[in-house]
Design a protein around this nucleic acid. Structure first.
Lengths: 197, 197
DNA sequence: ACCTGAACACCGTTCAAGT
DNA sequence: ACCTGAACACCGTTCAAGT
């Protein structure tokens, strides 16, 4: 055993990885800095070097969530054709799929209690994925498959519908019978509201 | 001073009232059972008589939120006329208004981490206000101002749009310029997606 | 620079005991 | 029935000290 670093190399990454695991397995309420440190095998004060506060770790976690969401969304557009309806369908399923597969993380990403500075960084990350949706809708407009109007203003109701359906699904507000056709209905509704004339 | 009750009469109500106040003023993260007890002037163990756990108090708080939301929604329908567009417009503004005026409470109401039994009670409370929206849309169908289809399936995308816009607004994801016309755009989109044919 | 060890001021929850 | 007082096992955060 040579002079390896103090513990095992990359404490910040280890903290984030562990944190997301317990977030997924036990929910955000059970996320304790001390327990994280215990599981990784460092002292209770060690995390403080890398995340000044617990909220800072949560903010960092939310940021990775936005990045992964952007990747998921980008992947959904591969080999799906150029028609607006098909692209929107794929994007909607990707977004809702990500949401239900990462419920606690999504809660964190859109949580009310971010610090002002963190909100700035998160806003940028959120924009990163929202621009994909904007591009998709803008393309639809150019193809004549989406009604005219300022891009952001056309897109906002689409955002709201997707985000709202994901939120309802994640918080368990949708009866089981609904989940079978709910997403289909939502997509149909979005397409209707986007249609020209 | 006669033999008044142990503290001042109604500890459960006092706890709920104080809890909502600090929820509004300092956010859900700053909600401490011990501090609540301190402010009210009872021992740290007193709340336990009425709310077996902190989560139980949060669940009760969420329940009052759904009740007040239902009242707000009902009030929005008074003297608004019978036309679907007008009723939906009023309901949408009432919902989003309630959301931004009670951001932390809304977060709680649609939180992921309710206990299974609490979810049942909350589901009932949520249904209480959702039925108002269902009635509104059903009436629109009968008037021929809303497209046909199973009521719940027509309503779900509307729910999603409202809930999603509220969530985006509450979590600060909407730039300031947007809030001026965002809600108008959303309502227009909802009406478009509800239109017959 | 990165981490430890110990300390501080807080938690939620439990439980015997009081009224 | 309703609450107190004290205790238990935990927190997040700070800070001198070590390597």
């Amino acid at each position: 055993m040579k002079n390896r670093p103090y513990h095992h190399g990359d404490l910040p990454a280890a903290l984030l990885a562990r944190a997301e695991q317990t977030l997924r397995e036990k929910g955000s309420g059970a996320l304790s800095l001390r327990e994280l440190a215990r599981e990784i095998g460092v002292s209770p004060a060690a995390p403080n070097r890398h995340f000044k506060t617990k909220q800072a770790l949560l903010d960092a976690l939310a940021l990775t969530g936005f990045e992964r969401l952007a990747e998921t969304l980008a992947a959904s557009q591969e080999g799906v054709g150029a028609a607006f309806a098909a692209r929107m369908d794929a994007a909607a399923r990707a977004y809702v799929g990500f949401a239900v597969a990462n419920a606690a993380l999504l809660d964190l990403m859109f949580s009310v209690k971010h610090s002002p500075e963190a909100s700035e960084a998160l806003g940028a990350a959120a924009q990163q994925w929202s621009e994909q949706l904007l591009e998709l809708i803008g393309d639809g407009q150019r193809r004549g498959e989406v009604r005219e109007g300022q891009l952001e203003r056309v897109a906002l109701p689409v955002f709201a519908a997707l985000h709202g359906y994901a939120g309802l699904a994640v918080s368990g507000m949708l009866p089981a019978e609904v989940t079978e056709h709910g997403l289909d209905d939502l997509i149909a509704s979005i397409l209707r509201s986007c249609a020209p004339q």
